[in-house]
Design a protein around this nucleic acid. Structure first.
Ligand SMILES: [Zn+2]
Ligand SMILES: [Zn+2]
Ligand SMILES: [Zn+2]
Ligand SMILES: [Zn+2]
Lengths: 131, 131
DNA sequence: AAGGATATGTAATGTCATAACATTCAAGCC
DNA sequence: GGCTTGAATGTTATGACATTACATATCCTT
């Protein structure tokens, strides 16, 4: 399994796990002032490691981070995110057909993919109508 | 067709059209100093309009902008980007199957999508090996 | 000419992320 | 124990991306 987390990584992980919506690095920092964190870099370093371990995802269209909803389940597959712009809730899912189609395109174009981002922004079922 | 562009929109559009790779708003600003632009907002406002018109795309994973490769061709469809991290070249493409699969997921989950981002980062055929 | 909508100019500020350097900590070896 | 070494941490400063707020100008319609 994955190695134990360090102190700062544990603090950041707990903050993200307890959050209802994605958090920016600076929001995480604010919530951890009382635990001794003072500088952005302390949070960014923890986020980097947690992301490497697959415990946290970065949402590119939000410049924010979420705890993985299925830790240790989708180590290497393609993940898509549905992000509600009203309540902030994020759903993760994978789709083999989407993956195959994108893989097909990259192969056909001799493109070597390193990281793929799929983010759908909109409103979740509970928020449609309220927005 | 689309309305004529304003002065600032024209300047920004020309800069992006002539670029080999995505440009950040501040890079665009730097290239337009001699044309009288002084503040980021002048560029951001033009980019907003150009994006609305479909002439420019924002790359979320890069915080940068590119001229559309197929203006007036894909007004409303889902667009995917393959971005070379070595040479910066960006390829746009659409895939109906990917669109259908993502639409299927959102319908099944009562999610109302507003904007979908698909960005594949990696290395293009010409750059594989050099990186 | 008057009014309203759109576009522009400018300064200040807010938000996100990293560089550079010093210090501390834990583990393995002599 | 005392040493080395690599990882993690702490701190300051800076860089990069984006928006708020307000003033002014321009264009189009009446
Ligand atoms: Zn996940
Ligand atoms: Zn919602
Ligand atoms: Zn396009
Ligand atoms: Zn390339």
């Amino acid at each position: 399994m994955s190695a134990d987390l360090t102190r700062n990584q544990t603090l950041v992980m707990k903050t993200l796990s307890g959050a209802e919506a994605p958090l920016s690095a600076y929001t995480i920092l604010d919530r951890l002032r009382d635990d001794g964190l003072r500088a952005p870099l302390q949070v960014y370093r923890a986020l980097d490691k947690l992301t490497e371990m697959g415990l946290v995802h970065r949402l590119e269209s939000l410049n924010a981070f979420v705890a993985c909803a299925h830790p240790n389940c989708h180590q290497q597959e393609l993940i898509a995110f549905a992000i509600c712009e009203t309540c902030g809730k994020v759903e993760e899912f994978s789709d083999e057909v989407v993956k195959d189609r994108l893989d097909g395109w990259t192969r056909a174009h001799s493109f070597r993919p390193a990281k793929t981002t799929i983010e759908i922004r909109g409103n979740c079922g509970g928020c449609v109508g309220k927005a």
